[in-house]
Design a protein around this nucleic acid. Structure first.
Ligand SMILES: [Mn+2]
Ligand SMILES: [Mn+2]
Ligand SMILES: [Mn+2]
Ligand SMILES: [Mn+2]
Lengths: 223, 223
DNA sequence: AAAATAATTTAGTTTTGTCTAAATTATTTT
DNA sequence: AAAATAATTTAGACAAAACTAAATTATTTT
């Protein structure tokens, strides 16, 4: 396990976020993302290429290598665990966590991060609803999660219902829930783990835990 | 509030630790502390002098200015709060906390640190028994603490007894405790907050909270 | 298929923080 | 009080990461 500089890490993470399933990342796109000049980006690309983190040929664009992706997922794991910590334990609001996590993510002690993960109860999503990679860099739930496991006030859409009984459908119909319905969890009641849900402009309604755990959602594509 | 680089912060903190109540710090001493060459130290001294953090005249040694001390106490506050967090919340052992805190201390968000302080319950000493500066950089308990407030297994010596009744003296005599006695707290019993104490090679004994809170100690000069 | 435009890279600087080797100043020994 | 030794500083170099300006390559327009 080699260590990378803060700059290298910021580049690697930014490339990971820019590259989708396929297609090349461009120098200008990365330059814009990192707010550095294209010429500086080119310099770093060469460096990351010699470190075998990048597949890069000049003028042709680039993508992370398998190694590069592994490194990126480690950084993202640290970032999102710290975001969860800041939000859950230190009561930071949503919009404040990212900036601080941007710095904390560069403290690379593996023991620190794994212990933090354990301390936080192995959370699966950060306060923005993004998945937290595990110790092996695997994203356990790349998209879908039961509605019982998502953060509050996060716009989501129903992606799957894990119980196809008539009784379940009856409830869903009653609340106008279907695959693709956009909703947010507004409140969790710890007494019985029931949830208050708001779907669009409808009046909010309550779901019991035994119903809610079958309703799977993912982040809406827009956010 | 200006920000300082990681290198600058490490220098400032090291100087703070090297300078006692009076007397000059030497280039070689700082060089040894930081494991950098004396020539590099001289370069940084000039820089810190122009930033008015240091009183420095060449060939004559140096000390932190009032500003420099203020900055140093901020860094030390961050370092020790993180050490406390690692020890208390993440269950790191004693000897592991310093290295990680050495990196975490450079994340300078004031809100992060003040919220962390609150989350930890405003601890007064770090896991090594060293005092944690408050938000204003004041070290509330520079030396002495009631034996009820110190970490386990930390060699301390009795510095003050805050109750001079005959009954108290009776107990102290019985356990051979006097000003200067060296002891360690081996265990805290949460049931009644009583403490198990070991003084030198004597058999360990137990003190009730109502006795213990009058016994003040400080770190032994050696450690 | 040129010409024009956009994207990217190269070349040459700058700043920060480190280093080695040599010069200078301070301290200790004789 | 010299001479020897130790501590410190200066001078010059280097690597990392950024920049600007100029050159090169790719893409789009005419
Ligand atoms: Mn970052
Ligand atoms: Mn996030
Ligand atoms: Mn440090
Ligand atoms: Mn400590």
């Amino acid at each position: 396990m080699v260590n990378y500089s803060i700059s290298e890490e910021n580049y690697i993470k930014a490339i990971y976020h820019l590259q989708g399933a396929e297609g090349m990342v461009t120098t200008n796109a990365l330059s814009a993302e990192l707010k550095t000049r294209p010429a500086s980006v080119t310099d770093m690309l060469k460096k990351l290429k010699t470190k075998k983190l990048l597949n890069y040929e000049r003028y042709k664009g680039f993508r992370l290598s398998a190694d590069g992706k592994r490194v990126a997922l480690g950084i993202i794991r640290r970032h999102r665990l710290w975001e969860f910590f800041l939000s859950e334990k230190l009561k930071f609001s949503w919009d404040e966590v990212h900036e601080v996590a941007e710095e904390l993510e560069h403290v690379t002690s593996k023991k620190l991060i794994d212990k933090l993960d354990e301390y936080l109860g192995f959370p699966r999503v950060d306060p923005h609803g993004d998945p937290i990679p595990d110790q092996q860099g695997r994203i356990i739930s790349p998209e879908q999660l039961p509605i019982t496991d998502i953060p509050l006030n996060q716009p989501m859409e129903v992606s799957h219902v894990a119980n196809q009984s008539a009784e379940m459908l009856d409830i869903l119909k009653h609340h106008h829930i279907a695959i693709g319905t956009k909703l947010e969890v507004k409140k969790k009641f710890n007494f019985d783990n029931s949830l208050e849900i708001r779907a669009g402009k409808h009046t909010p309604f309550t779901l019991s835990e035994s119903v809610a755990r079958f309703i799977w959602v993912r982040k809406t594509s827009k956010s």
